[in-house]
Write a protein that binds this DNA or RNA. Structure first.
Length: 488
RNA sequence: GCCCCCAUCGUCUAGCGGUCCAGGACGUCGCCCUUUCAAGGCGGUAGCACGGGUUCGAACCCCGUUGGGGGCACCA
């Protein structure tokens, strides 16, 4: 039975790279029929926030990553917030100390640095394991000075390696990893300690995490061995280090990079299934001739051992292309339902929309669907249908509402005023006759000005249908308004 | 500096010793369709970092070089 987990710390914004990691763990668990555990690692009171915690759960649910054990769901190994598990860590720490796997260390960072420098070494080498063999007397003496020790893990004196699920054999030489701090002098447990302890207690079998954590794996393995020895763990899990997600440069997508904020994709109206699809492509491929797939297809096909080991750049254009494909594939009613909240938020339609607004929306939806990339595009694309007056884009006006376009607006207005039945077909006939035949304009020179005058943009849903929905009065008013304001 | 990871079109990838003078997607370019813009269709462009091996045969295996990245906290 496979048990995977996603264990973010609730500090600030939700990172797309973190959600990619969550997705892979979820997909791996679902594909193998295993369990997906969601755990909150809020051991850093100074940086964690309740708001961030709530937001994390919200993002997970929105993306469709359901968890079998975790916050608000419960499970046999709770609680699932580390801030509520301090007794667990206190107990395990005591047992590790008693068994000799951990020891009390009094060296301060300054003292370690000083010793490294005195020995002509780079302080970057870190802790020098100086306190490994303090006698009981020395410990007592140091305590008598009022010094409080941290708890450190005693690293084994041998090479530490493992078979990585995505990278194969990896090994670190003995002595290359200093004894890590498990618990602060204050008694506060640290991530390198709580993480493996909880993984062990929660039965996690497969750890899929970012490659940035790869160098810390030896100490995790050492801890696992110690935990196994004292009966807390029943072995070491498998590890799979996922490729990093790069931003525009050749660097890990940092938390400071605007592109890393998961919310911007949600807010722009990416579809959960579209984002799931793209995120999955960051290091994985479903087939050699296809890259659009549903979450269900992802689960069906996902194989962690086929995840690529090279870093993946977050390519917004590709993400948009993938999302647009999913958007177009939506049944039109579903599309309309998903677009509506964006129009409501923009103040274009009521909440809920009025019957008339709904009629217009239903009519225009199929025509708008294939012209959009994200749901929020609807605000700009369809706004003109839900307002009395239209805001005309300056660039569009400069391009299509020039002085010489005045004749088009006049001719269009005259022709449309005379259209007997206000239907798309009749509107088309009237405009073609008056602008293309009578005025002798090329189609793009004929319809461009009308489009901009009426919709405010050079890109809009098909013109005749748009005019039909807009109604004769508003259409004529806008043609005249544009004539006055621009084409003179 | 030390440790570790990575190396196929601009980007993400397929490739797991012969079927690859390397396939797909995004981008880009051209054409078609066309009422603008898209969408859609068709076509083009562009890549195995380098050097040694191993092998009858290497993008695929080994070694080295170069390049890129990550990590070196009493953060997670």
């Amino acid at each position: 039975m496979t048990v995977t987990r996603f264990c973010p710390s609730p500090t600030g914004l939700v990172h797309v790279g973190a959600m990619r990691t969550a997705l892979f763990n979820w997909a791996h668990a679902r594909h193998t029929g295993g369990t997906f555990v969601f755990r909150i690692e809020d051991t850093d009171a100074a940086r964690d926030s309740e708001e961030s915690y709530r937001h994390l759960l919200d993002c997970m649910r929105w993306l469709g990553l359901d968890w079998d054990e975790g916050p608000e769901v419960g499970g046999p190994h709770g609680p699932y917030r580390q801030s509520e598990r301090h007794e667990v860590y206190r107990d395990v720490a005591a047992r590790l100390l008693a068994a000799g796997h951990a020891y009390e260390s009094f060296s301060t960072t300054e003292e370690v640095d000083a010793r490294r420098r005195a020995a002509g070494q780079d302080p970057k080498l870190g802790y020098d394991n100086a306190d490994r063999h303090l006698t009981a007397e020395q410990v007592a003496a140091l305590r008598a000075e009022g010094r409080e020790p941290v708890l450190r893990l005693r690293m084994p004196d041998e090479d530490l390696g493992w078979t990585d699920l995505v990278r194969g054999e990896i090994s670190f030489a003995a002595g290359s990893v200093p004894d890590p701090v498990l618990v602060r002098a204050t008694g506060a447990p640290l991530y390198p300690f709580t993480n493996p302890v909880d993984d062990a207690l929660m039965g996690v079998t497969d750890v899929l995490r970012g490659e940035d954590l790869l160098p810390s794996t030896p100490r995790q393995i050492a801890l696992y061995r110690a935990l196994t020895d004292i009966g807390v763990a029943s072995g070491t899990p498998r590890f799979g280090h996922l490729p990093l997600v790069f931003g525009d440069g050749n660097k890990k997508l940092s938390k400071r990079d605007p592109q890393s904020d998961f919310d911007v994709y949600r807010d722009r109206g990416f579809l959960p299934e579209g984002l799931v699809n793209y995120l999955a492509l960051l290091g994985w491929a479903i087939a050699d001739d296809r890259d659009v797939f549903s979450p269900a297809e992802l689960v069906e096909a996902f194989d962690v051992t086929r995840v690529s080991a090279n870093p993946a750049r977050f390519d917004l254009r590709k993400a948009e292309a993938i999302n647009a494909t999913h958007l177009r594939a939506l049944p039109v009613e579903e599309f309309t339902a998903r677009v509506t909240p964006f129009l409501v938020r923009a103040g274009l339609v009521g909440d809920p929309p009025t019957a008339e607004q709904q009629r217009v929306l239903d009519a225009i939806a199929p025509l708008a669907q294939e012209r959009m990339i994200v749901l929020s595009d609807a605000v700009g694309l369809l706004g003109f249908l839900f307002t009395d007056d239209v805001d005309i884009d300056a660039a569009a006006a400069a391009k299509n509402l020039r002085p010489e376009d005045g004749e088009v607006l006049d001719a269009a207005a005259a022709a449309l005023r005379a259209v007997p039945a206000w239907t798309a077909a009749d509107i088309e006939g009237a405009l073609k006759q008056s602008l293309v035949e009578d005025l002798g304009r090329k189609p793009r020179q004929a319809f461009g000005p009308v489009r901009v005058a009426v919709s405010g943009r050079t890109v809009s849903p098909p013109l005749y249908e748009s005019l039909e929905l807009l109604g004769r009065d508003r259409t004529l008013r806008r043609l005249e308004g544009a004539r006055e304001a621009y084409a003179r």
